[in-house]
Design a protein around this nucleic acid. Structure first.
Lengths: 190, 190
DNA sequence: GTTTGTCTATCTACTAGTAGGCAGACAAAC
DNA sequence: GTTTGTCTGCCTACTAGTAGATAGACAAAC
């Protein structure tokens, strides 16, 4: 493992946010899980708002880096989109990360600390931007047929991904995810 | 108004659930809002789990009734679907009910009391069933062209609606909703 | 006169957050 | 090379406040 305590705190907090959102966990939950005292968490992250803000900022950064490397390593846009969606399907199937941190927090937006809400919004913009770029490239290379502007199609795709996560969770069936997003990609292909 | 205290409690609790989910409110919040004491709420709803279970069951029932009357009053399937989506767009635009209670709770599914989770799942099934019936009727009457089974198309539509709500909230832009769901309906039309 | 609904008062458990101390690592000062 | 000071990371012990929940009194309604 070789994780610092701060990293362990962030990892555990992230898992708890994914399970129950901002109000779904406490410092005590994290402390028990990683074997330190509550006060020690305050040493690393003075307030809960700060802990979650750091956590979301880190998540957003990791996601951005992951999408960037995907753009570099998978040249064909159609395949690139598929790889992104397969990543999420795998996370949901093995329950390792069955939900997007920012999708989770987006629901609680009206009562999130400002520092957290800002990063959540940024992630939505980043993801929409990346999807737009993939769709644009795919259309230029003749892999996708777009009936509406790529920006709008990107919003549709992003909403489908988040909605599919929600349905998979609500219905308790991880396969719902690919059943929803699969056809959405197929209909773009030429 | 003419609401009973129980109804007032349920109304306020529902608004609070929509804003912040199951862990996003307390009995004190409701008590302050409607001008009674915390203990009085326990008289009507002994536990929080029970209060929210009743609330969700009521919501599910109301939704079912609303969809049923929609089926009866709007004969054309395409128009029926449009009317359903317009209802949500209006709710989001005027902020009267900017999120589906069950979509909100679906995110918190892993840590919801069983009685609540059951009703959330039932709502997802009901909604998917209603959408399926509209799509089937539309296909039979030559209003929709379905490339995949109506059950699967219904899941896609449902996910789009919930994902669009999430995006509208995350990005702070109510118009995202129709920008996402609009094209999803258009592409079904012949 | 029993039921219904509300109240005050209280409880226990838990929330985030604080104060202050202590052990070990690492220097620089003597 | 021992002392001194500083820093990090964690600790115990505590605070004020809030969580959901309970007991029992009271008054009005049926």
């Amino acid at each position: 493992m070789e994780l610092t305590t701060s990293e362990k705190i962030l990892e555990k907090a992230q898992a708890l946010v994914i399970a129950g959102g901002y109000n779904g966990f406490s410092y005590a939950d994290i402390a028990d899980a990683i074997g330190i005292r509550k006060a020690s968490i305050h040493h690393h992250f003075p307030t809960k708002a700060e802990l979650v803000a750091v956590l979301v900022e880190r998540y957003t950064r990791q996601a951005e880096a992951g999408l960037k490397s995907l753009s570099e390593q998978v040249p064909a846009p159609a395949e690139r989109l598929r790889t992104y969606l397969d990543y999420w399907q795998a996370c949901i199937l093995d329950a390792s990360q069955p939900f997007c941190v920012c999708a989770m927090l987006a629901g609680e937006m009206p009562m999130l600390p400002e520092g957290v809400a800002l990063h959540v919004r940024a992630h939505f913009r980043n993801l929409a931007g990346w999807l737009t770029s993939v769709l644009k490239a795919g259309a230029e290379q003749g892999q996708f047929r777009l009936d509406i502007p790529p920006e709008e199609e990107a919003q549709i795709l992003m909403a489908s991904v988040h909605g599919a996560m929600l349905s998979a969770r609500a219905l308790g069936d991880p396969h719902i995810f690919s059943a929803v997003v699969g056809p959405q990609v197929e209909r773009l292909r030429i």
